[in-house]
Protein backbone atom coordinates (compact mmCIF):
# COMPACT_ATOMS: atom_id res chain seq x y z
CA UNK A 1 0.00 0.00 0.00
CA UNK A 2 2.83 2.42 0.75
CA UNK A 3 4.06 4.33 -2.27
CA UNK A 4 7.21 5.65 -0.64
CA UNK A 5 9.31 3.55 -3.00
CA UNK A 6 7.31 4.29 -6.12
CA UNK A 7 7.69 7.19 -8.51
CA UNK A 8 5.07 9.83 -7.96
CA UNK A 9 3.86 12.21 -10.62
CA UNK A 10 3.49 15.91 -9.93
CA UNK A 11 1.37 17.69 -12.51
CA UNK A 12 2.08 21.35 -13.09
CA UNK A 13 -0.46 23.51 -14.87
CA UNK A 14 1.79 26.08 -16.50
CA UNK A 15 0.48 29.43 -17.72
CA UNK A 16 3.68 31.49 -17.70
CA UNK A 17 5.88 32.78 -20.47
CA UNK A 18 5.55 30.83 -23.69
CA UNK A 19 2.09 29.56 -22.82
CA UNK A 20 -1.40 31.02 -22.99
CA UNK A 21 -3.44 31.56 -19.85
CA UNK A 22 -6.51 29.47 -19.26
CA UNK A 23 -9.66 31.29 -18.30
CA UNK A 24 -10.85 30.60 -14.78
CA UNK A 25 -13.56 28.19 -15.89
CA UNK A 26 -11.17 26.08 -17.96
CA UNK A 27 -8.57 26.14 -15.20
CA UNK A 28 -11.19 25.03 -12.66
CA UNK A 29 -12.54 22.28 -14.90
CA UNK A 30 -9.04 20.98 -15.65
CA UNK A 31 -7.91 20.94 -12.04
CA UNK A 32 -11.17 19.35 -10.87
CA UNK A 33 -10.96 16.61 -13.50
CA UNK A 34 -7.38 15.78 -12.54
CA UNK A 35 -8.16 15.77 -8.82
CA UNK A 36 -11.09 13.46 -9.39
CA UNK A 37 -8.71 11.04 -11.07
CA UNK A 38 -6.51 11.15 -7.97
CA UNK A 39 -3.70 13.38 -9.23
CA UNK A 40 -1.91 16.17 -7.36
CA UNK A 41 -1.76 19.42 -9.28
CA UNK A 42 0.38 22.50 -8.89
CA UNK A 43 -1.16 25.62 -10.37
CA UNK A 44 1.73 27.92 -11.09
CA UNK A 45 0.65 31.53 -10.69
CA UNK A 46 1.28 34.47 -8.43
CA UNK A 47 2.88 33.31 -5.20
CA UNK A 48 4.86 30.39 -3.87
CA UNK A 49 4.33 26.70 -4.45
CA UNK A 50 5.88 23.70 -2.76
CA UNK A 51 9.56 23.18 -3.55
CA UNK A 52 10.69 20.52 -6.00
CA UNK A 53 11.53 17.07 -4.77
CA UNK A 54 12.39 14.00 -6.77
CA UNK A 55 8.83 13.46 -8.06
CA UNK A 56 8.54 13.28 -11.82
CA UNK A 57 7.08 16.48 -13.27
CA UNK A 58 4.48 16.56 -16.00
CA UNK A 59 4.03 20.14 -17.18
CA UNK A 60 0.79 20.88 -18.99
CA UNK A 61 0.17 24.11 -20.88
CA UNK A 62 -1.27 25.72 -23.94
CA UNK A 63 2.11 26.30 -25.45
CA UNK A 64 2.89 28.67 -28.33
CA UNK A 65 2.09 27.14 -31.70
CA UNK A 66 0.79 24.07 -29.90
CA UNK A 67 4.37 22.89 -29.42
CA UNK A 68 5.44 21.74 -25.98
CA UNK A 69 9.07 22.57 -25.29
CA UNK A 70 11.71 19.89 -25.03
CA UNK A 71 13.60 20.43 -21.81
CA UNK A 72 15.22 18.58 -18.98
CA UNK A 73 16.28 19.23 -15.42
CA UNK A 74 19.58 21.15 -15.41
CA UNK A 75 20.77 19.00 -12.51
CA UNK A 76 19.65 15.81 -14.15
CA UNK A 77 17.82 14.74 -11.01
CA UNK A 78 14.17 15.13 -11.89
CA UNK A 79 12.30 13.66 -14.82
CA UNK A 80 10.46 16.48 -16.60
CA UNK A 81 8.01 16.16 -19.48
CA UNK A 82 6.06 18.95 -21.20
CA UNK A 83 2.77 18.31 -22.96
CA UNK A 84 0.60 20.67 -24.92
CA UNK A 85 -3.09 20.70 -24.03
CA UNK A 86 -4.27 23.21 -26.64
CA UNK A 87 -7.69 22.19 -27.89
CA UNK A 88 -8.09 19.31 -25.43
CA UNK A 89 -11.18 19.05 -23.26
CA UNK A 90 -10.95 17.72 -19.70
CA UNK A 91 -11.47 14.16 -20.89
CA UNK A 92 -8.62 14.52 -23.34
CA UNK A 93 -6.38 16.02 -20.68
CA UNK A 94 -7.02 13.28 -18.14
CA UNK A 95 -6.45 10.64 -20.82
CA UNK A 96 -3.15 12.29 -21.75
CA UNK A 97 -2.07 12.39 -18.11
CA UNK A 98 -3.03 8.78 -17.53
CA UNK A 99 -0.97 7.74 -20.54
CA UNK A 100 2.01 9.65 -19.15
CA UNK A 101 1.51 8.15 -15.70
CA UNK A 102 1.45 4.65 -17.11
CA UNK A 103 4.50 5.25 -19.30
CA UNK A 104 6.52 6.51 -16.34
CA UNK A 105 5.17 3.71 -14.13
CA UNK A 106 4.22 6.26 -11.52
CA UNK A 107 2.00 5.39 -8.58
CA UNK A 108 -1.69 5.10 -9.28
CA UNK A 109 -4.04 6.74 -6.82
CA UNK A 110 -7.60 6.33 -5.82
CA UNK A 111 -7.94 2.57 -5.76
CA UNK A 112 -8.79 2.34 -2.09
CA UNK A 113 -11.01 4.39 0.18
CA UNK A 114 -8.56 5.79 2.70
CA UNK A 115 -10.16 4.60 5.92
CA UNK A 116 -7.61 4.08 8.65
CA UNK A 117 -6.84 5.33 12.16
CA UNK A 118 -4.72 8.42 12.64
CA UNK A 119 -3.13 8.73 16.06
CA UNK A 120 -3.01 12.10 17.77
CA UNK A 121 0.31 11.78 19.58
CA UNK A 122 -0.42 14.95 21.53
CA UNK A 123 -3.10 12.93 23.32
CA UNK A 124 -1.82 9.35 23.08
CA UNK A 125 -0.40 7.93 26.29
CA UNK A 126 0.77 4.70 24.66
CA UNK A 127 -1.59 2.65 26.83
CA UNK A 128 -1.96 -0.05 24.13
CA UNK A 129 -5.75 -0.31 24.50
CA UNK A 130 -6.13 0.03 20.74
CA UNK A 131 -3.58 -2.69 20.11
CA UNK A 132 -5.33 -4.98 22.56
CA UNK A 133 -8.75 -4.26 21.07
CA UNK A 134 -8.16 -4.47 17.34
CA UNK A 135 -8.60 -7.98 15.94
CA UNK A 136 -7.27 -7.12 12.51
CA UNK A 137 -3.62 -6.39 13.31
CA UNK A 138 -3.88 -2.74 12.31
CA UNK A 139 -1.74 -1.65 15.23
CA UNK A 140 1.77 -2.58 16.20
CA UNK A 141 4.73 -1.06 17.97
CA UNK A 142 8.01 0.27 16.69
CA UNK A 143 11.45 -0.57 18.05
CA UNK A 144 10.85 1.87 20.93
CA UNK A 145 7.57 0.14 21.82
CA UNK A 146 5.65 3.17 20.61
CA UNK A 147 2.18 2.42 19.28
CA UNK A 148 1.98 2.72 15.51
CA UNK A 149 -0.54 2.16 12.77
CA UNK A 150 1.28 -0.53 10.85
CA UNK A 151 -1.27 -2.21 8.61
CA UNK A 152 -3.76 0.47 7.72
CA UNK A 153 -5.13 -1.48 4.77
CA UNK A 154 -6.33 -4.14 7.25
CA UNK A 155 -8.69 -1.57 8.74
CA UNK A 156 -12.40 -2.22 8.11
CA UNK A 157 -13.93 0.61 6.11
CA UNK A 158 -16.33 2.77 8.12
CA UNK A 159 -15.54 1.00 11.39
CA UNK A 160 -14.35 3.45 14.06
CA UNK A 161 -14.54 0.96 16.93
CA UNK A 162 -10.94 1.27 18.13
CA UNK A 163 -11.32 5.01 18.53
CA UNK A 164 -14.01 4.34 21.11
CA UNK A 165 -11.78 2.28 23.34
CA UNK A 166 -9.12 4.97 23.43
CA UNK A 167 -9.40 6.59 26.87
CA UNK A 168 -7.85 9.81 25.56
CA UNK A 169 -9.86 10.13 22.31
CA UNK A 170 -6.50 10.07 20.56
CA UNK A 171 -7.57 7.97 17.60
CA UNK A 172 -9.09 9.80 14.68
CA UNK A 173 -10.78 8.69 11.50
CA UNK A 174 -10.79 11.93 9.49
CA UNK A 175 -13.56 10.73 7.21
CA UNK A 176 -15.89 9.85 10.07
CA UNK A 177 -19.13 11.79 10.30
CA UNK A 178 -18.81 13.35 13.74
CA UNK A 179 -16.39 14.56 16.35
CA UNK A 180 -14.16 14.02 18.09
CA UNK A 181 -13.45 10.89 16.04
CA UNK A 182 -13.26 13.00 12.87
CA UNK A 183 -10.52 15.16 14.38
CA UNK A 184 -12.73 17.86 15.84
CA UNK A 185 -11.59 19.39 19.12
CA UNK A 186 -11.97 17.08 22.11
CA UNK A 187 -13.91 18.79 24.86
CA UNK A 188 -13.95 17.54 28.45
CA UNK A 189 -17.60 16.61 28.04
CA UNK A 190 -16.91 14.62 24.91
CA UNK A 191 -13.99 12.92 26.55
CA UNK A 192 -16.26 11.82 29.37
CA UNK A 193 -18.85 10.67 26.87
CA UNK A 194 -16.19 8.72 25.01
CA UNK A 195 -15.09 7.18 28.26
CA UNK A 196 -18.64 6.09 29.02
CA UNK A 197 -18.84 4.49 25.59
CA UNK A 198 -15.62 2.67 26.28
CA UNK A 199 -17.01 1.26 29.47
CA UNK A 200 -20.13 0.07 27.71
CA UNK A 201 -18.41 -1.39 24.69
CA UNK A 202 -15.70 -3.01 26.78
CA UNK A 203 -18.34 -4.57 28.98
CA UNK A 204 -20.39 -5.74 26.05
CA UNK A 205 -17.25 -6.80 24.20
CA UNK A 206 -16.39 -9.08 27.08
CA UNK A 207 -19.92 -10.37 27.17
CA UNK A 208 -19.96 -10.95 23.47
CA UNK A 209 -16.92 -13.13 23.54
CA UNK A 210 -18.13 -15.01 26.58
CA UNK A 211 -21.60 -15.37 25.11
CA UNK A 212 -20.15 -16.72 21.90
CA UNK A 213 -18.05 -19.22 23.79
CA UNK A 214 -21.06 -20.25 25.86
CA UNK A 215 -23.24 -20.61 22.81
CA UNK A 216 -20.54 -22.55 21.07
CA UNK A 217 -20.33 -24.93 24.02
CA UNK A 218 -24.09 -25.30 24.15
CA UNK A 219 -24.38 -25.88 20.44
CA UNK A 220 -21.71 -28.55 20.63
CA UNK A 221 -23.63 -30.44 23.26
CA UNK A 222 -27.18 -29.86 22.07
CA UNK A 223 -26.92 -29.52 18.33
CA UNK A 224 -23.77 -31.39 17.50
CA UNK A 225 -25.49 -33.16 14.62
CA UNK A 226 -26.76 -30.03 12.97
CA UNK A 227 -23.78 -27.80 13.43
CA UNK A 228 -22.86 -25.87 10.34
CA UNK A 229 -20.59 -22.96 9.69
CA UNK A 230 -23.43 -21.07 8.01
CA UNK A 231 -25.62 -21.40 11.04
CA UNK A 232 -22.86 -20.33 13.38
CA UNK A 233 -22.11 -17.36 11.19
CA UNK A 234 -25.75 -16.33 11.11
CA UNK A 235 -26.09 -16.68 14.85
CA UNK A 236 -22.93 -14.75 15.53
CA UNK A 237 -23.93 -11.99 13.17
CA UNK A 238 -27.38 -11.72 14.69
CA UNK A 239 -25.97 -11.63 18.18
CA UNK A 240 -23.30 -9.07 17.43
CA UNK A 241 -25.60 -6.93 15.32
CA UNK A 242 -28.16 -6.81 18.11
CA UNK A 243 -25.55 -5.88 20.65
CA UNK A 244 -24.03 -3.33 18.33
CA UNK A 245 -27.43 -1.73 17.79
CA UNK A 246 -28.21 -1.69 21.51
CA UNK A 247 -24.86 -0.22 22.41
CA UNK A 248 -25.00 2.26 19.53
CA UNK A 249 -21.39 1.46 18.74
CA UNK A 250 -21.84 2.10 15.03
CA UNK A 251 -19.95 -0.87 13.66
CA UNK A 252 -20.94 -1.66 10.06
CA UNK A 253 -22.69 -4.95 9.38
CA UNK A 254 -20.02 -6.03 6.91
CA UNK A 255 -17.42 -5.65 9.63
CA UNK A 256 -19.45 -7.74 12.01
CA UNK A 257 -19.92 -10.32 9.28
CA UNK A 258 -16.22 -10.45 8.62
CA UNK A 259 -15.26 -11.03 12.23
CA UNK A 260 -13.31 -14.21 12.77
CA UNK A 261 -14.89 -17.17 14.56
CA UNK A 262 -15.38 -17.02 18.31
CA UNK A 263 -12.36 -19.21 18.91
CA UNK A 264 -10.27 -17.15 16.57
CA UNK A 265 -11.45 -13.99 18.28
CA UNK A 266 -10.38 -15.40 21.62
CA UNK A 267 -6.99 -16.37 20.22
CA UNK A 268 -6.48 -13.04 18.51
CA UNK A 269 -7.54 -11.11 21.58
CA UNK A 270 -5.13 -13.14 23.65
CA UNK A 271 -2.30 -12.55 21.19
CA UNK A 272 -3.04 -8.82 20.97
CA UNK A 273 -3.16 -8.58 24.75
CA UNK A 274 0.15 -10.36 25.04
CA UNK A 275 1.66 -8.00 22.48
CA UNK A 276 0.34 -4.98 24.36
CA UNK A 277 1.54 -6.31 27.71
CA UNK A 278 4.97 -6.99 26.26
CA UNK A 279 5.14 -3.46 24.90
CA UNK A 280 4.00 -1.97 28.20
CA UNK A 281 6.39 -4.19 30.14
CA UNK A 282 9.24 -3.12 27.96
CA UNK A 283 8.28 0.53 28.50
CA UNK A 284 8.33 0.27 32.26
CA UNK A 285 11.56 -1.73 32.44
Amino acid sequence: MAIADETTLRIVLYEGEGAASLDAADRGATVTALLEQGYAVTCAGAGAVAPADDSALLVLGRFENGQAPEAEDANGEVSVAFRDITGLDTEGITALVETERASTQSAKHGEWKPWFPVIDFDRCTNCMQCLSFCLFDVYGTDEDQQIQVQNNDNCKTNCPACSRVCPEAAIMFPKYKSGPINGDVVSDGELNREKMKIDISALLGGDVYQMLRDRSQRSRSRFSKERSSDKALGERTKCLTKLAAEADIDIPLEVLQSLPSADEIAKKAEAANAKAKAALGSQSS
Binding site: A40, T42, G47
Partner: peptide
Protein backbone atom coordinates in the same frame (compact mmCIF):
# COMPACT_ATOMS: atom_id res chain seq x y z
CA UNK B 1 -2.90 32.71 -7.17
CA UNK B 2 -0.49 29.82 -7.23
CA UNK B 3 -1.68 26.82 -5.26
CA UNK B 4 -1.21 23.12 -4.76
CA UNK B 5 -4.22 20.84 -5.04
CA UNK B 6 -4.25 17.23 -3.92
CA UNK B 7 -6.92 14.61 -4.42
CA UNK B 8 -7.03 13.39 -0.84
CA UNK B 9 -4.66 14.03 2.05
CA UNK B 10 -5.94 10.92 3.82
CA UNK B 11 -4.95 8.72 0.94
Amino acid sequence: RAFEAVADLCE
